[in-house]
């Protein structure tokens, strides 16, 4: 089975990944081990749940991500790409699994080094505030 795995940075049906895969079963997993490792408190869990209520046809589970996937016979996942290493590590626990990532819509285009903010801002600023000619 192929699913759209909704992680905690994409709780919004208007994100491109939802439009791109309208027919996939949407799945969100509250994984107690992940929550504990993150150190989340109840307010965050509730805040996320508020957002899940607005996403039609989403199946919400409590359990280990690997167990949810094996009980649904998931062999292929689509999700949104993220630089969040904790989410990546969580998904890495699923190997072997085919995972397709859909990019987030970028705030700016930038491929330079990320050493100091000022250098980055100088490069990207004109994308939002074009310099007067």
């Amino acid at each position: 089975m192929k699913i759209l795995l909704v992680h905690d940075e994409m709780i919004n049906e208007s994100l491109p990944v939802f439009a791109q895969y309208p027919d996939l079963q949407r799945v969100f997993v509250f994984d107690p081990a992940f929550i504990a490792a993150e150190g989340w408190t109840m307010k965050r869990v509730q805040f996320i749940a508020d957002g899940l209520m607005e996403i039609p046809n989403i199946h919400v589970y409590k359990g280990a991500l690997t167990d949810v996937c094996s009980s649904l016979s998931v062999s292929h996942i689509v999700t949104q790409r993220t630089p969040n290493h904790c989410i990546s590590a969580w998904l890495a626990g699923l190997t072997p699994m085919l995972i397709d990532y859909v990019d987030e819509s970028p705030f700016v285009r930038y491929s330079g080094r990320v050493t100091r903010f000022t250098k980055y801002w100088k490069t990207v600023e004109p994308q939002w505030f074009p310099k007067a000619q």
Binding site: F30, P32, I35, T41, K43, Q46, D50
Partner: peptide, 24 residues
């Protein structure tokens, strides 16, 4: 729902969320 989540995740500590989540 908030009470339900407390029951489902008794090990998760803390007060209820004063922020309402969601796109709307």
């Amino acid at each position: 729902r908030n009470a339900q989540l407390r029951q489902l995740f008794p090990e998760v500590a803390g007060v209820d969320s004063v922020f309402e989540g969601g796109r709307a």
